[in-house]
Simulated scan of single mutants.
Amino acid sequence: MSRVWFATELETVATFWRLLRRDGVALGFVTHDRDLWLDGLCHRAAPGMVPSAIRRSAGLEADSAEVEGALAHDALSARDMACGRFDGAALQIGLVDWQSGESEVLYRGTLGGLAATDEHFQAVALSGKADLHRDPVPRTSPSCRAVFCGPECGLSAIAHDRRAGIAGCDMAANTVTIAGADSGSAGDWIGGRLRWLDGPLAGTASTILWADGPHLALAAPLEGPVPPGSRVVLRHGCDRTLATCADRFANAVNFRGEPTLPGNDFVARTPVGG
């Protein structure tokens, strides 16, 4: 039988919340004056955290929740939030008895929005029922809708990923110089992805806008100097056209697009004389 919380006038109860980031990092915080170990994870004291009222219903409407507080820990920094480290992270909010260790998760969801200033943050969570409001039907498009090297694409990620090192970076131009990726031409990386394995940006990824030899321009801004020797993984780019899919990758059978389908203006077209 589960415990009935707040059944007496005075209880030793605190609120905890966990963030499970997509890069495998798990963070825990608790509204208490000292750190607590819970389910094998150290929940750091965050007395300034203020969770909103949690509403759970039997209907199909998504159950929302909010958490706000002070950026009092190195684990929660405005820089990490701006880099996208917390995008799509799983969120758990619950209660814990800091004397007996009893706990219960009251809310599970994902971060739907995260805003941060130099001193405070505010996070909006969406429950799993939010997926019921997403339209799963794909829309027609002349370009491929599949994620490159994803399940629908069918190409092997290992065949199109290359490990490399950072030889230098230019903060003003937002470019990095790579060393060790000697497969293919520089144009193969345009539209691809650079994923950081270590250094200050470890766990994040950025789209490659253009390439000139070993120099790559990134879409995501460099928040600070990158130490030489930092390891990265480069993935080839794809412009999502049928010609590239067929000629470069020999993967036209998995092309997820309709390049020959007439557009919306087909009925308004008029024949050209002569």
Rank of each mutant, 00 (worst) to 15 (best):
G112A: 12
I93Q: 11
D247G: 11
A90W: 05
T204Y: 13
W5C: 06
S77I: 06
P138R: 00
G94K: 02
A58G: 04
N251P: 14
L209E: 10
G237F: 02
G101L: 13
P138Q: 00
P271S: 13
R34A: 14
A167N: 05
D23H: 07
Q122G: 12
S103W: 09
T207W: 03
E258L: 02
R163C: 03
H32N: 10
H120Q: 14
E11R: 13
S64E: 11
A46P: 01
E152P: 00
W5A: 09
C169K: 01
R193E: 09
R195S: 15
A115S: 09
V253A: 11
G88N: 02
E9L: 11
M49A: 15
G237W: 01
R248E: 05
A75I: 02
Q99K: 06
V50A: 10
M81I: 11
S143A: 12
Q99Y: 10
G257W: 00
Q122R: 15
R139W: 02
D198H: 07
S100E: 03
R231E: 13
S185F: 08
D212E: 14
D35F: 01
G165K: 11
G263V: 00
R3G: 01
A246T: 11
A243N: 06
S156K: 06
T31E: 15
S185H: 08
L194C: 11
A45G: 02
D170R: 12
W5L: 10
Q92S: 10
A179C: 06
H215P: 00
W196C: 13
L242H: 03
N264Q: 08
D74S: 12
R139F: 05
I93Y: 05
T175H: 07
I158C: 04
V272F: 08
A75S: 14
E102Q: 08
L71S: 01
A58P: 02
P214R: 13
H73E: 05
A58I: 12
P138I: 00
L20I: 07
S156I: 04
H215C: 13
G101S: 06
A181S: 13
A72D: 14
T31I: 03
G229V: 06
T244R: 03
V272C: 10
C169H: 13
L38Q: 09
A205V: 08
W17D: 02
S143G: 05
Y107Q: 07
G273C: 03
R195V: 15
L132N: 12
D35V: 01
G263F: 00
R85I: 04
R145A: 14
D188W: 05
L261E: 15
L132Q: 06
